[in-house]
Write a protein that binds this DNA or RNA. Structure first.
Lengths: 153, 153
DNA sequence: CTCGACGAGTGGACGAGATCGACCAGACCA
DNA sequence: TGGTCTGGTCGATCTCGTCCACTCGTCGAG
């Protein structure tokens, strides 16, 4: 993970379809060696994948909400986590330090879907309470910040 | 935005580097026509971009936190939003319905960076109070859910 | 000091993919 | 009926991805 790798990561982070040839030009190497570096970054898990960024409203997922989960004392966290994972509408799931020990980011087409989703989450054993907040607008999301200068891997 | 477009979007959403040729095979068209569709989807803003998914710990951003902002009565939301946008560590920013009218997702290398960040956010005019929650672990993040069956663009 | 192994990069060759222009078929409408 | 528009195919060409052989430092062992 040297400076060249960082540049590659930064470039792919802002445009995941940048070709190896283009990356090679930017970092001053040839395409095969860049490809080699990228392959290693993928193997090491530094690059976990590539995604198209989709406008969720455009594909009918107009409603975004945040759901906090307060567990009860007997909660089996592994079980809760697996049950949450099975719900496709939950796009992100964070385990938090606090009373609300999970926060979910969910997207649904309609309010009715959100209501059903909240009930489904609330019905998971170990979930004592949920607290849902609607997002009125997303100012921005997953904006890549530059890789800070990094020691070693 | 017909069924073929949805398939293309779903494929690119899970693997943003899928080639046009591969997409063409999957949807039963030729590469040029798929390319044409993708170009239109990009123009329409349905596809907003492509990103490599990076393991933030691997690049030295080991700490993720959620910061809620409670504004005061005189808050100028446009101004707050712009000042927040200027802070690179804020990867996502949602405008919420609730007492905490913004929620930020931030990533920093060290706890000290988080502390400075909280002070910086708290110093923005119109911000009455902030509430920060550390994420102990990210179970998953930005998992693409399939495009629901959709009426029209 | 020399030898061999190894990691990282280069250069060339070849097949696959991207891209462009020309052409075609069906829908729609005057 | 004929014109136009949209969305598709086909084929040519150029670029890109990918594999392989080779080179060049570096490093440790003998």
């Amino acid at each position: 993970m040297d400076e060249i790798d960082q540049t590659i990561v930064n470039l792919l982070r802002t445009d995941g379809r940048t070709s190896y040839a283009e990356l090679a030009r930017r970092v001053g190497l040839t395409a095969p060696s860049v490809q080699d570096r990228v392959t290693k970054l993928e193997k090491n898990g530094v690059i976990a994948g590539y995604r198209a960024v989709i406008d969720s409203e455009a594909i009918g997922l107009g409603i975004t909400a945040l759901i906090g989960i307060i567990p009860d004392n007997a909660a089996d966290h592994h079980d809760i986590c697996e049950r949450l994972r099975a719900i496709p509408q939950i796009e992100s799931c964070y385990f938090l330090a606090g009373v609300e020990c999970y926060q979910l980011k969910v997207r649904v087409p309609k309010m009715g879907d959100l209501e059903r989703l909240i009930h489904r989450v609330g019905a998971i054993p170990g979930v004592a309470q949920t607290r849902t907040t609607i997002t009125l607008s997303t100012k921005w999301e997953d904006r890549p910040q530059p890789v800070p200068y990094e020691q070693e891997d």
